Structures are given as structure tokens and as C-alpha cells.
Amino acid sequence: PQEEYKKRAKKALKKGDEDTAREALKRAGLSPDQAEEFIRRFL
């Protein structure tokens, strides 16, 4: 589910792994723009 992928993305970002985070967010159904926004907000 979407929440699970978002959790995964946050874990990846904590490790500084933005590529894995983007992949997880893409799987969560976010557009690339939404994924970038999510990452920017998190960092």
C-alpha cells in the first residue's frame, strides 16, 4: 500500500539514499514532481 512505500522512502532518506526514496515514491503512485516535493519536505 501507499503508506508502506512512503515509510520506506522516509527510511531511505534518513540514510541519505534519495534514489531508493524516489523509487519507493514512484511505486506509491506519486508523480516525479510529487516525489521531489515529498523529498524536499523531508530533508
Results as ranks from 00 to 15, higher is better:
1 P>S: 14
1 P>E: 15
1 P>T: 14
1 P>K: 14
2 Q>W: 13
2 Q>E: 14
2 Q>V: 12
3 E>I: 08
3 E>N: 09
3 E>K: 09
3 E>F: 07
3 E>Y: 08
4 E>P: 04
4 E>I: 08
4 E>M: 09
5 Y>P: 04
5 Y>Q: 11
5 Y>D: 07
5 Y>L: 14
5 Y>W: 15
6 K>Q: 10
6 K>N: 05
6 K>M: 15
6 K>V: 15
6 K>G: 04
6 K>I: 15
7 K>F: 05
7 K>M: 08
7 K>I: 08
7 K>P: 03
7 K>V: 07
7 K>A: 12
7 K>C: 12
8 R>K: 14
8 R>Y: 11
9 A>S: 02
9 A>G: 02
9 A>D: 01
9 A>Y: 02
9 A>T: 01
10 K>R: 14
10 K>C: 13
10 K>P: 00
11 K>F: 05
11 K>E: 15
11 K>Q: 14
12 A>D: 03
12 A>Q: 03
12 A>K: 02
12 A>L: 08
12 A>C: 04
13 L>Q: 01
13 L>R: 01
13 L>N: 01
13 L>F: 02
13 L>S: 01
14 K>L: 15
14 K>Q: 14
15 K>P: 01
15 K>W: 08
15 K>Q: 14
15 K>I: 13
15 K>H: 13
16 G>V: 02
16 G>W: 03
16 G>I: 02
16 G>A: 04
17 D>S: 04
17 D>Q: 07
17 D>F: 05
17 D>G: 03
17 D>P: 02
17 D>A: 04
17 D>W: 04
18 E>Y: 15
18 E>P: 11
18 E>K: 14
18 E>F: 15
18 E>W: 15
18 E>V: 15
19 D>N: 11
19 D>P: 10
20 T>Y: 10
20 T>D: 07
20 T>S: 12
21 A>D: 00
21 A>I: 02
21 A>V: 03
21 A>Q: 00
21 A>G: 03
21 A>L: 02
21 A>P: 00
22 R>F: 06
22 R>G: 02
22 R>D: 00
22 R>T: 04
23 E>I: 08
23 E>Q: 08
23 E>Y: 03
23 E>T: 07
23 E>V: 07
24 A>R: 03
24 A>G: 03
24 A>M: 15
25 L>P: 00
25 L>E: 00
25 L>S: 00
25 L>N: 00
25 L>R: 00
25 L>V: 01
25 L>K: 00
25 L>G: 00
26 K>P: 01
26 K>A: 14
26 K>D: 08
26 K>F: 10
26 K>W: 06
26 K>Y: 12
27 R>Q: 14
27 R>I: 10
27 R>P: 01
27 R>N: 13
27 R>D: 11
28 A>G: 08
29 G>Q: 03
29 G>N: 04
29 G>R: 02
29 G>W: 01
30 L>E: 01
30 L>W: 07
30 L>K: 01
30 L>M: 12
30 L>D: 00
30 L>T: 01
30 L>H: 03
31 S>N: 09
31 S>C: 10
31 S>H: 06
32 P>T: 10
32 P>I: 11
32 P>S: 11
33 D>W: 07
33 D>S: 11
33 D>P: 07
33 D>K: 11
33 D>R: 09
33 D>E: 14
33 D>Q: 13
34 Q>G: 05
34 Q>F: 05
34 Q>A: 11
34 Q>T: 04
34 Q>L: 07
35 A>D: 01
35 A>G: 03
35 A>V: 14
35 A>S: 08
35 A>H: 02
35 A>R: 06
36 E>S: 06
36 E>V: 04
36 E>Y: 04
37 E>H: 06
37 E>Y: 04
37 E>W: 04
38 F>R: 00
38 F>D: 01
38 F>M: 05
38 F>G: 00
38 F>A: 03
38 F>N: 00
39 I>H: 00
39 I>V: 06
39 I>W: 01
39 I>C: 03
40 R>L: 09
40 R>F: 09
40 R>E: 11
40 R>C: 10
40 R>H: 11
40 R>S: 09
40 R>M: 09
41 R>F: 08
41 R>K: 13
41 R>V: 08
41 R>I: 11
41 R>S: 13
41 R>D: 14
41 R>H: 12
41 R>E: 14
42 F>D: 03
42 F>C: 11
42 F>L: 07
42 F>V: 09
42 F>P: 01
43 L>I: 09
43 L>V: 08
43 L>S: 08
43 L>W: 11
43 L>R: 11
43 L>F: 11
